[in-house]
Design a protein around this nucleic acid. Structure first.
Lengths: 297, 297
DNA sequence: CTATTTCATAATTTAAAATTATCTATAATA
DNA sequence: TATTATAGATAATTTTAAATTATGAAATAG
């Protein structure tokens, strides 16, 4: 159970604004000022500097922030475990990024719910950025993540390696080429995910590694949903990149072909991620083992 | 930073008494009652049961206690790291049990202080029980422990294996025997450590494993200091058991001989122990690596 | 059976914390 | 350059929370 002034501090860190933190906590701005002042006196150092109308964490503040986030999440976990002890069903809240949630997880989800039927399970599906902020807020216990994230701040374990591949409609001209180079895709209509999506960043990073940017493709359109993207590719509206896992369901993958692009193979990790605290590690361990085995196929 | 009502809760757990917790915290007993009541409402469960004039933790209370101790220690660690960031010397407080502190540590202590000269170092030497309570209170960051402890509640890593041996003065009759059995020691004056000492428990446990108790030795005396024990053995006042490490210093070990006792060899672990939190693990890691290497000889 | 100890409860006082109102500094805008 | 808007600091006041005092009930020890 975190001191209430620490809760205020965490809110200010999230918003980098006293005023907005106050709004979130339903208190007034001077109350926030007092809380921060108290902590600064308590720890004997400044936590924020306010200059050029911008609030910035000091190194000390940053350390306190990282501690506070973990302490808060740990406290939440304990609270739930106590509730579980007192007779209530233990809660399990997990998150998954879009491809994993929609495709990778589909075949293992019902065995999972069965294996942990003693828990009350909630699954959130959203992009990588949202997963990380839900972890920090204690909204979810762990996340299955396909995108890149700052490894220092989280505890992550490899679930599986996943291929990121080019998808075209069957009968597409690229399929008749003996070999396909990146250059051959240039004039195609490319369908890609929205900014903030892990899949988009994977493609961006792969291009960046070859000294390219998305501008390499002059014809682009953005679609924030993988199933819709598949539909559009099937209709001949463009080509796209996605994880091979998104193509395992035969019903929705008919009429789609994977084309290997020479010198442009992309292999990414799917990770099991949670906060780097011993309690979280202990709590998440059985779930990790389940997914690790189930996805090993 | 722990909520103040949690601090009260921890004090009540330590004393198992509202009244004494109140005294420790310099508040009145009804204030303690209010704090506990608040927590019980907050978590939706009872934390203590009071019956037969005894206070007892409920299972929920016990869970909260284990969490709270760790949270408190972690908070303290963060506070110190922040102080270190703000320019102060980082503090390092460690503990060692008596044999380790007095003998095992002696040859590596000055290299240790040199290696971590950027830290302000404090070393406490006391028995195992005290080490554990200092860990829980956050007084020390880690301890080098020779005795037995509850492994569930702490994170421990092996430093070295240590032999527990019989020591007699040179020229003692046992030295002339071709082989020495436990039975041969029976009539000797045995010098042993005080209750609560890890060394005493080692001997007790070894006897217990052979269906014996300390009463096997009718002539016993208790000395709470290893150097003094060595002196007494040298003077022929008795024989004793101690870790071989206590005999490495040639100055104070002259005139003492180790006698192997058939079927009574005792091998014990020296462990590096700290609280089971990720922050503590991270913080202690360089120190562990130092001792592990230094004591490997 | 009485005295003593320990926690619970209620009423009162005290202290802490939040709010309102105001001020200052900075940057964007006219 | 003057003006306005925004964000945070400060001070005084009000409100809320928390601590204390005083007392009561239960249980054990003498």
């Amino acid at each position: 159970m975190l001191d209430s002034r620490m809760e205020t501090f965490l809110a200010v860190c999230r918003h980098l604004s006293y005023t907005r933190a106050a709004r979130e906590l339903y208190i007034t701005q001077p109350a926030v000022t007092q809380h921060i002042r108290f902590l600064e006196t308590h720890f004997g150092c400044r936590l924020f500097v306010y200059e050029h109308r911008k609030l910035r964490l000091t190194p000390e503040g940053d350390l306190l922030y990282r501690y506070g986030r973990d302490a808060r999440a740990t406290g939440e976990l304990v609270r739930q475990q106590m509730a579980a002890l007192s007779g209530g069903k233990p809660e399990l809240r997990l998150g998954a990024t879009l491809t994993i949630g929609e495709f990778t997880l589909a075949p293992v989800l019902s065995p999972f719910m069965e294996a942990f039927s003693s828990h009350s399970i909630t699954l959130y599906v959203d992009n990588t950025r949202e997963m990380l902020s839900m972890l920090e807020a204690g909204t979810i216990h762990f996340a299955l993540i396909e995108g890149l994230f700052n490894r220092e701040h989280y505890h992550s374990r490899l679930l599986k390696m996943a291929e990121f591949v080019l998808v075209v409609p069957s009968g597409h001209r690229l399929l008749s080429l003996p070999r396909v180079l990146l250059e051959d895709l240039r004039q195609e209509q490319l369908i890609l995910r929205e900014p903030g999506s892990g899949s988009r960043e994977v493609l961006q990073q792969a291009l960046y590694d070859r000294n390219l940017t998305l501008d390499f493709f002059p014809r682009r359109m953005e679609i924030g949903n993988v199933s819709l993207t598949k539909h559009l590719v099937r209709c001949g509206s463009g080509i796209s990149f996605m994880y091979r896992d998104a193509l395992t369901d035969p019903d929705t993958s008919a009429g789609l072909c994977v084309v290997p692009v020479e010198g442009f193979s992309i292999l990414r990790e799917f990770n099991f991620v949670h906060l780097n605290t011993s309690l979280a590690t202990e709590f998440c361990d059985p779930f990790y083992r389940f997914f690790r085995e189930a996805l090993q196929t």
